Amino acid sequence: MKWFNLLLIFLPVAVVLEITGGNPTLIFVSAALAILPLAGIMGQATEQLAVRAGSTVGGLLNATFGNATELIIAFFALQAGKLEVVKASIIGSILGNLLLVLGLAILLGGLKYKEQKFSVKAAGTLASLLTISLIALSIPTIFDLTARSVSPDLVGQLDVNLSEATAIVLIIMYVCYIFFTLRTHKDILSNADEHGEHEGPLWSVPRAVGVLAGATVAVAFMSEFLVGTLEAATSTLGLTEFFVGLILIPIIGNAAEHAAAVLFALKNKMDLSLTISLGSTVQVALLVAPLLVLLGLLVGQPMNLVVTPLELVAIGAAVLIGNSVVRDGESNWLEGVLLLGVYVILAFAVFFYPVA
């Protein structure tokens, strides 16, 4: 994936355009393209540190930085007050990981191998976590729909209060999940340790830390450019902010991780592919979403977890079909087509969704 790094040319392009007051759409596109390789570099640096740190600390590092790029982008959108974009990016990540990434991995892996097998126990554990995450994320929306008929004047603040309480519970659940996988039941997801089959030379710790810090700073600047030009760019490109949040931002933020899941499937390592796609989904639901709610308090942008009925139905459908595909411990190319088909239909629905 070294060719991916060629996109780094858009980093200075975005900076020059921003400094010289260039076209907002060009700044938006340049920043988005620059984030793609930067996310990959962050992942590479994290992996280098994980190999050096050992399986337990390494697993924790991978879990912590797995969705760092997307969290940074969402944070700048949150700071700018684009709460609906932030919430759409959370839902979009779940949909992207469960339908687009898993679908591509299963399809391309299935075209190369007639049938691919993976651990039923590991897949079942992640599928259960996904179901619980869906229920937890659905409650604020259901609460909002029912509470409006009882107390329409107070429901806005009540939504925020419930979301903050839900965020704390979700983070506690995530900590328990990490402890479960890294301590008490690490044999269940032991295949994830195959990430230790590191290819290429090992970096020194200072180099890995330096690269991670540098890439994180660069992603922060590009994210600020991206969010700052979002309104003008979407108007020029004929897209809605809802579409950008639900479809584009998750793809931009997770492109490197997505590519890794597909490459592992092509190597017939479906356990690793599932660990990446499903594990990333669990992290978004149990860590990224609640962190953004709590960060909203710090930056003076109170955010709730109430989503549109379309988004609620979409994640419900994604979790349902994702569960049905992974429960039997084997996959084929047709299942990949089904996952991708659902994602494309949802993408069309979001594209045609009317702007308020």
Rank of each mutant, 00 (worst) to 15 (best):
L286V: 09
T125Q: 09
A356Y: 07
D271M: 05
W3R: 10
S93W: 02
A14D: 08
Y343K: 01
P309A: 01
Y353R: 07
K186D: 14
L7P: 00
L202N: 14
A356N: 13
L8M: 13
V85H: 08
G110S: 13
T69A: 06
G81H: 02
A167R: 00
I276M: 14
N191C: 07
K112N: 11
L226P: 06
G214F: 03
F264T: 08
P37E: 12
N62E: 15
I247K: 02
K269S: 13
F143V: 02
L292G: 06
M173S: 12
L162Q: 10
G238Q: 10
S93K: 05
S119Y: 05
L71T: 13
I252S: 01
I90V: 12
A314K: 02
G81C: 13
S55T: 07
G54D: 05
A77F: 11
T281Q: 08
L237Q: 07
P37W: 08
T275I: 08
L61H: 02
F143I: 00
T216R: 07
A88M: 09
F65W: 03
G253Q: 14
G66F: 07
L291C: 11
L108C: 13
G336I: 09
I172R: 04
E241V: 09
A256V: 04
E70P: 01
A45P: 00
I315M: 12
L248C: 10
L26I: 14
S280N: 03
I132A: 11
A356P: 03
G341P: 07
Q301I: 13
A50S: 12
I135P: 00
G296F: 07
L287D: 00
V299D: 09
E224K: 11
L145P: 08
F143A: 01
Y177H: 09
A105W: 03
V299C: 12
E311A: 04
I9K: 03
T46W: 01
A285M: 11
L104W: 14
W3I: 11
A318Y: 02
L230Q: 03
V51H: 04
F179H: 14
L108E: 05
A259I: 06
G329N: 10
V217K: 08
F264G: 01
G196S: 14
L310I: 09
S30I: 04
G66L: 05
I249L: 10
L36R: 10
A256H: 07
M42I: 15
P206H: 05
P24K: 07
D328M: 15
E115P: 01
E231I: 08
P354W: 15
L291T: 15
E70T: 08
N332M: 13
G54I: 04
I94L: 03
E330A: 06
E231H: 15
G238C: 06
S331R: 05
F348A: 15
R207I: 12
L38G: 10
H258A: 14
L11A: 06
S190G: 11
A167Y: 00
V120H: 14
V13T: 11
F352E: 15
A220H: 02
Q116W: 09
G92Y: 05
V51F: 04
N161S: 15
I252R: 01
P290M: 09
R148C: 01
Q79W: 08
L108V: 08
G253A: 10
V337R: 02
I90Y: 03
I345L: 15
I142P: 00
L33I: 13
F118E: 04
I35D: 01
